[in-house]
Design a protein around this nucleic acid. Structure first.
Length: 620
DNA sequence: TACATGTGTCATCCC
DNA sequence: GAGGGATGACACATG
């Protein structure tokens, strides 16, 4: 029992330690350091007080404590990176003897003093010694609205531990398990006086893809250490893109009773009934204030359609869930093409045929300018029907829109941090885990999928994207049972098969073909414009080069003209000099106006009379 | 309000 | 001949 409480206390400290670690690593938590300083100050104060108590206890314990220290060391392992001792994940902490269920017993057994060890371990001892009295004295001022009282049946019935339970980590067994190795020391529950701030920090942290990757790694390590396999997990995410499992780690207080079963994540690809969208009603600004890690994890990693485990798209029970690869290789069934399923049924095929799709459609293969657009199949999760989308689009402030904004906030956080609309939506999260809406795909042509726009603000066409395309409206009005993307992107054969398998009336057929033609043409127009821009850019480059060349040639010509002029002057002076040296038979100099010097090809010089030459010319 | 820009669509040509 | 790519032209939305 006390082990469980200690785990709770641990987690709260783990929260703070992880925040500190991230802070030292200069990871933007999105919150000021002051958020955490209050806890740290309290921690220091408690440490000082507790040191005094600890000194007294040291004298009382005597030599008997050394054996306990030894036993404790066996349960701790040295973190080579931080130099701190961290509690090992025991196979089952709940199986520890119940003889030491008192706080003191726990303290002596688990976290007794180790001489010469890191300060964090001393802190651990001191903090544990004071944890429980202080917990009883301190009540959480305002429990978070999302907080659920843990049931005594799940192993944590101490009301005085609620403060630590309010920690998002403490409320989430997965995070607790994942973060356990990160935080070496226990923490008094009193160190969670500002759960809202801490949770806000956790909101920020959970939005960091790097952290999620780290958590994934931690999860894998924990699973390995405990010999758990995915098949033994009670909470299993079957999406292979999500290596994020929820281990039922022993000794950890799991409040799975208070959380709905976690179904398949990739069921985002499936239909989301409007009633299931109730889970999407979180407003982004409220996240920081009211939602715990559990709720966040549910939002991020659980299926909005989990209230329908019998979803026709994918069974949601862990045992019945299709392996994604198996689903991918299922033959294309028209009945499965009710919504775009590029990530599921025909996704594989489509992905090979439209590797780089502008607006999810472009087949541009230009090596020069890679399309910043996100490929259609990358958007895999388009789990909304037309009606859902229309409602979402027609009600910008509706829950669905908020849901979309929320995911935009969380899933593109890194993108927003790293660059301002770099148009590189290479999400670090699995593509088909993104609950991307269809309107983002179809009308995402405007910004994210823009072919040759540069770093222009996306909001320019935000309004356009917030509405369904005309074709989608038309398709919905005529009851076309296919997604517009599917109509456009299917190969001819598949498209014809699809048409033949469905009994469509004339109007529907005409509309479907118009949609396909317009979609194709739209992509062609985008590619054409892109090529045009590239051509213009190339011509501008050529023009600049030619201008440079022209300027260089003009400079060279001026230099040549100068040189030529100088040579002519030298030649004239030399001519006069030579001519002045010439004498006739009488020793008189020749007159330059009557004679001229001419040179033959063999280099001999002749003195030619000009008059004679003039007379000869007159004779002719 | 005029203007620039981006985008969708149509018509047409061509393969 | 159908399908579709390429492209000029136009209309519209948006900043």
């Amino acid at each position: 029992m006390m082990e469980v409480d200690l785990s709770s206390a641990h987690r709260s400290q783990q929260d703070m330690d992880l925040i500190d670690i991230l802070w030292r690593q200069d990871i933007d938590l999105g919150a000021g350091r002051e958020v955490f300083d209050l806890s740290l100050r309290q921690k220091e104060n408690e440490l000082r007080r507790q040191k005094e108590l600890e000194e007294e206890k040291r004298l009382q314990e005597g030599a008997g404590g050394r054996e306990q220290d030894k036993a404790l060391l066996e349960q701790l392992e040295l973190d080579e990176e931080t130099g701190e001792f961290m509690p090992r994940l025991l196979p089952s902490e709940t199986e520890l003897p119940d003889t030491d269920t008192t706080p003191e017993g726990n303290q002596n057994t688990i976290f007794s003093r180790v001489d010469g060890n890191a300060l964090s371990f001393d802190e651990c001892i001191q903090l544990l010694a004071e944890t429980f009295p202080l917990v009883e004295a301190i009540e959480p001022p305002h429990p978070p609205p999302g907080y659920i009282m843990p049931s005594p049946s799940i192993g944590n019935s101490r009301p005085d531990m609620l403060t630590s339970q309010q920690s998002p980590v403490a409320q989430n067994p997965m995070l607790s398990a994942l973060l356990a190795p990160l935080a070496p020391t226990a923490v008094p529950a009193s160190l969670a006086p500002a759960p809202v701030d801490v949770e806000q920090a956790w909101m920020e942290l959970l939005c960091l893809p790097e952290l999620q990757q780290c958590l994934n790694m931690q999860a894998s390590e924990i699973l390995d250490q405990n010999g758990y396999t995915s098949t033994s997990m009670p909470l299993v995410v079957q999406d292979p893109n999500y290596s994020f499992y929820l281990p039922e780690l022993p000794g950890l207080v799991t409040n799975v009773d208070t959380t709905p079963p976690v179904p398949l994540i990739n069921s985002f690809n499936g239909m989301v009934p409007p009633d299931n969208l109730n889970q999407m009603t979180l407003k982004a600004p409220e996240l920081n204030a009211t939602y715990t890690t559990d709720s966040l994890c549910e939002l991020f990693y659980t299926d909005p359609s989990n209230t329908k485990p019998s979803s026709p798209m994918l069974p949601c029970t862990s045992n019945e869930a299709y392996p994604l690869e198996e689903v991918r290789h299922k033959p294309l069934e028209p009945s499965e093409i009710h919504v775009p399923q590029f990530s599921l049924t025909d996704g594989h095929k489509t992905a090979t045929e439209f590797p780089d799709s502008d607006s999810g459609l472009s087949m541009d293969t230009s090596p020069n300018v890679s399309s910043p657009r996100k490929s259609h199949q990358d958007d895999g999760a388009m789990g909304y029907s037309d009606s859902d989308l229309e409602e979402m689009d027609s009600n910008p402030g509706s829950n669905q829109s908020e849901y979309r904004e929320m995911f935009s906030l969380s899933l593109h956080g890194e993108e927003q941090q790293s660059s301002t609309y770099n148009d590189d939506p290479s999400s670090h999260l699995p593509a088909n885990s993104l609950p991307c809406t269809k309107s983002e795909l179809v009308e995402g042509n405007g910004h994210k999928l823009r072919p040759f726009t540069k770093d222009k603000p996306r909001r320019r066409s935000a309004g356009r994207q917030s509405r369904l395309s005309r074709d989608e409206h038309r398709a919905k009005a005529l009851g076309i049972p296919f997604a517009v993307e599917l109509i456009i992107n299917l190969p001819v054969d598949d498209f014809n098969d699809l048409m033949s398998k469905h009994q469509l009336n004339e109007a529907q057929l005409v509309l479907v073909r118009d949609i396909r033609r317009r979609g194709k043409n739209k992509v062609a127009a985008q590619n054409c414009r892109k090529r045009k821009m590239e051509s213009i850019s190339g011509l501008e480059g050529e023009l600049d080069a030619l201008r440079d060349k022209k300027e260089r040639l003009l400079r060279e010509r001026a230099q040549m003209d100068g040189s030529l002029k100088e040579l002519k002057e030298q030649l004239g002076s030399l001519y006069l000099e030579v001519f002045s040296l010439l004498r006739d038979e009488e020793g008189k100099p020749y007159c330059p106006s009557d004679y001229s010097l001419q040179q033959t090809s063999d280099g001999r010089m002749f003195l030619v009379p000009r008059v004679q030459k003039t007379l000869e010319g007159d004779d002719k």
